[in-house]
Design a protein around this nucleic acid. Structure first.
Lengths: 188, 188
DNA sequence: TGAATCCTTTGACCTAAATCAAAAAATGAA
DNA sequence: TTCATTTTTTGATTTAGGTCAAAGGATTCA
């Protein structure tokens, strides 16, 4: 899956791909494990092979706000912390038993130096993440609660039914009571 | 200013910088000029030397929604359209008389091929844009109108007083009436 | 310099969604 | 299998901010 992801962006030879993959580690993570806490500098970039990851932060009143869901087939990171090596604003966790490929910042930098194509991939990855964030921003700003939930269903159909309701509600910027009522009216 | 921007990310020699700058053009643009319309594929990346740029889109009801303001010292683009060469979701315009450096996609690609450092710069640029978008997303989701305006004041103090109120209001996801009332209470 | 257009303010009223509270359902641990 | 904890649903009430309408100000351009 990771191989396909790379090949899709920039073509590699089989030898190159094998070498690139050797920089990654394979990990199995149990449900509800925290990968990064707020304030830590994130040293790893993750690729979700199976399962769901989530980033969130705590409001002053202690309530969690989901910032993003990472489904299978996507890279996951506390992007600003990892790329800019600054303290993370977010917590990162997995909300299901999850299979991850991971790479450290140091190894990624080595890879980027070794393969120019890798730098291209990271550039494209950053732009892709950027695009999807912008898309979310536009889907949430000025939209009603119902429209925001419709965006969620179309953008993350699988996650919409696997993540706890409260986590989805905060991702969409509404209370869980409101989301619960929306779901009821959905089925009618 | 553009030189400083580059040097700040990756060191170049004087000769290199001169060569890189020769790929850019210098343009003076009159207030309220549209640079890109929705649906067009954006072929240019802009650097704002002086003035203010703005991206916006139209809702189904025809109302403009400001997506971003670009102040002096920043790159401006319809990011997804320029980098991925897809039809732009946004309009791009300048809201003051503006001095811009511009570079076409073709020339930028040449530069990236010629100087690896350029690819690094674009990668870092993409990550920087990403980070600031994420920051906005977090500052708007779950915040009250007052808090959103405070974010605007701290993030874009200059633009807060130079852009028309309606444009700022839609950027912050509120009506202009609400923003007008906020400002009044501000002064009290 | 004045008509025309655009931008901002103000007021009255309304509504979507938040808050508060508590019951019901689901999950998990012993 | 039961008890405890967490998650979801439902109801009653409140409120922030939206909508509608109209009047003032400020720009612009002939």
């Amino acid at each position: 899956m990771l191989t396909a992801y790379f090949q899709n962006l920039v073509p590699f030879t089989d030898d190159e791909i094998a070498d690139v993959l050797s920089y990654f580690e394979h990990e199995t993570i149990k449900k509800n494990t925290t990968l990064i806490k707020e304030g830590q500098i994130s040293n790893k970039l993750y690729f979700v092979e199976k399962g769901i990851g989530r980033s969130y932060y705590l409001k002053k009143d202690g309530k969690e706000v989901t910032q993003w869901f990472f489904g299978a087939g996507n890279f996951m990171a506390s992007a600003d912390s990892f790329f800019q090596q600054t303290p993370s604003f977010y917590y990162l966790e997995v909300i299901e038993d999850t299979l991850l490929y991971t790479i450290t910042k140091e190894k990624l930098d080595l890879l980027i130096e070794k393969y120019r194509k890798m730098e291209t991939i990271i550039r494209l990855l950053a732009i892709e993440i950027l695009t999807s964030f912008v898309h979310k921003l536009n889907s949430i700003q000025f939209q009603t609660a119902r429209e925001r939930y419709d965006y969620m269903l179309s953008e993350f159909p699988d996650i919409s039914y696997r993540a706890p309701l409260g986590q989805i509600a905060s991702y969409l910027g509404m209370t869980q009571e409101t989301l619960s009522r929306l779901r009821r009216s959905e089925q009618a």
